[in-house]
Design a protein around this nucleic acid. Sequence first.
DNA 1: TATTGTTATACTCTATAACTATA
DNA 2: TATAGTTATAGAGTATAACAATA
Lengths: 154, 154
Amino acid sequence: MATSRKSPPSSAAEGVDTRYLETLMGYNARRAALAIIEVFMERMSVYGLKVVDFSVLSLVAHNPGITSRQLCANLDILPPNLVGIIASMDRRGLIERRPHPSDGRAVGLHLTPSGLTMMKDAEQTAADLEIEATSRLSPAERKTLIRLLQKIYL
Amino acid sequence: MATSRKSPPSSAAEGVDTRYLETLMGYNARRAALAIIEVFMERMSVYGLKVVDFSVLSLVAHNPGITSRQLCANLDILPPNLVGIIASMDRRGLIERRPHPSDGRAVGLHLTPSGLTMMKDAEQTAADLEIEATSRLSPAERKTLIRLLQKIYL
DNA sequence: TATTGTTATACTCTATAACTATA
DNA sequence: TATAGTTATAGAGTATAACAATA
């Protein structure tokens, strides 16, 4: 729903008054999010990861033994929709499912060595992208922006 | 992909380290956008409008005679996906399609009187929502946030 | 009785190819 | 030849209902 900067000048986009929409926080937040995520998707495709895949693997990396239920709660994914993601990461040998130490129903998720190696690269790619995507912001502005965004959703 | 503030405390969401993801601009922008848009959707359902419907009608309101092509270019909607939206707004008597004055292929879009009346209410609802959604931001912070977001996508 | 993970399935959103009529 | 609008359709993303195993 956003015309990202990298799209062609597209003559038809010119001469339209979008000033009202640009006063709306939701519109601005959504367009900024889409602009960044568009590039994020491109870069992550190198690893065969979608945005959600990256989020899942990243949480598993920083929370060894995390359960599907916890991933769903933190990433707003519905359980049925996470099943395929986990299965896919498992098939690719990126994660391992181990029995949960205290709850027989649950399964603890862990990165495999190759999953860990890949995520180190992927997180570095994400870090590089962060710099690029926010290249027109000073470090102070970048910090401010994140703080204000978190004031909205946290 | 965001656990909005209004969701239940959800015990499973606790105890998970999300600090890394929270350093990523894309993650923060997306969660903030989803948090606002979630409420936006609820409020607009009163008018039977989805988020994209609102954007379309708002651009038509502020740009009488705008074409489908221009709407697509400015809102990043693909032409085939706009057809149904326009048709629906037309059936509801909110917009009118008039022959384009200088291009026989194109159709100029205009709000009908009832469409205009509804959009006045809808835009007021959106304005009220803006205040609520950003209630933890000072007016200065709100202004800064919008400026920084536009620095990313514009 | 409630919860974790799962299957099956439906619904919505987004994307691609190809057509028509005008330019 | 290119563009505006359209159709049909495919694919991705998101949603609900119901089940087995465990708490």
